[in-house]
């Protein structure tokens, strides 16, 4: 993730706010020609953000079957203008959101989430706990994925094939057992009676997160 473009450098919070506003505005556009122009404009944002054509295709491809289906349903049920408007609108929304995600580091987005949650503290939302939950999920996602693979191998070795029950049940039991040990370890290490974890909001996320995200993405 090289951060050369203006989009890469813009603060995450600003990009999210802009996305929310643009997303709401797009819904108000009534003319399919304007909508298609907007779509092309957003698509142009990809090369401007130095993301390359592959990134654009990767965003649109999984959407294609649904868009085609929708186009014909709308065209036959309503009108072809309507069909073009709806399809272009969905594609535009998806591309705009993807543009934000692809030009913003995940840890910056986590930090934004935590900042957004801070005003909710009086309602019982503890940003420290939210942050711990994020960290734990990121820590154990690759572990559970590996564990799932191991369970699958073991079941195949025992001739149980790919029965979803034979896979899910042992995996869940292991996860629940591990959860107790992990909670004990956190309590043992935190030195808190009730850990209001991470009381230092000034702590910047460790740079190592970058490597982590990459490895999670490789894994999944």
């Amino acid at each position: 993730m090289t951060g050369g473009s203006i989009l890469h450098r813009a603060p995450a919070g600003l990009k999210l706010a802009a996305l929310a506003m643009a997303g709401s505005a797009v819904v108000l556009v009534p003319d399919w020609r304007v909508m298609v122009d907007l779509f092309l404009l957003v698509a142009l944002g990809f090369p401007l953000a130095r993301l390359g054509r592959g990134a654009l295709r990767a965003q649109l491809r999984p959407l294609m079957p649904m868009l085609v289906l929708l186009f014909f349903t709308q065209g036959l049920l309503a009108s072809w203008e309507m069909a073009a408007l709806v399809v272009a609108r969905i594609a535009t929304l998806v591309l705009m959101a993807a543009l934000v995600t692809l030009t913003t580091r995940s840890e910056a987005l986590i930090a934004t989430v935590e900042t957004l949650l801070r005003p909710l503290a009086p309602l019982g939302v503890n940003p420290g706990k939210v942050s711990l939950a994020f960290s734990l999920a990121l820590r154990f996602l690759p572990v559970i994925a590996e564990e799932a693979e191991r369970v699958r191998e073991a079941q195949t070795a025992r001739g149980l094939g790919h029965s979803p029950l034979a896979l899910a049940l042992p995996l869940i039991v292991r996860v629940l057992k591990a959860a107790e040990d992990i909670a004990d370890a956190i309590d043992a290490r935190s030195g808190h009676d009730d850990p209001s974890l991470r009381p230092h909001p000034e702590t910047a996320p460790a740079p190592g997160r970058r490597f982590l995200f990459r490895s999670v993405k490789e894994q999944v």
């Binding site: 572990v143 030195g191 808190h192 997160r209 982590l212």
Partner: peptide
């Protein structure tokens, strides 16, 4: 494996110092 609770080495080591 169940004692390391943060995603990266540095973050995990630093955890005990919080608070």
């Amino acid at each position: 494996d169940t004692q390391i609770v943060f995603p990266t080495v540095e973050e995990d080591v630093a955890f005990g110092l919080k608070g």
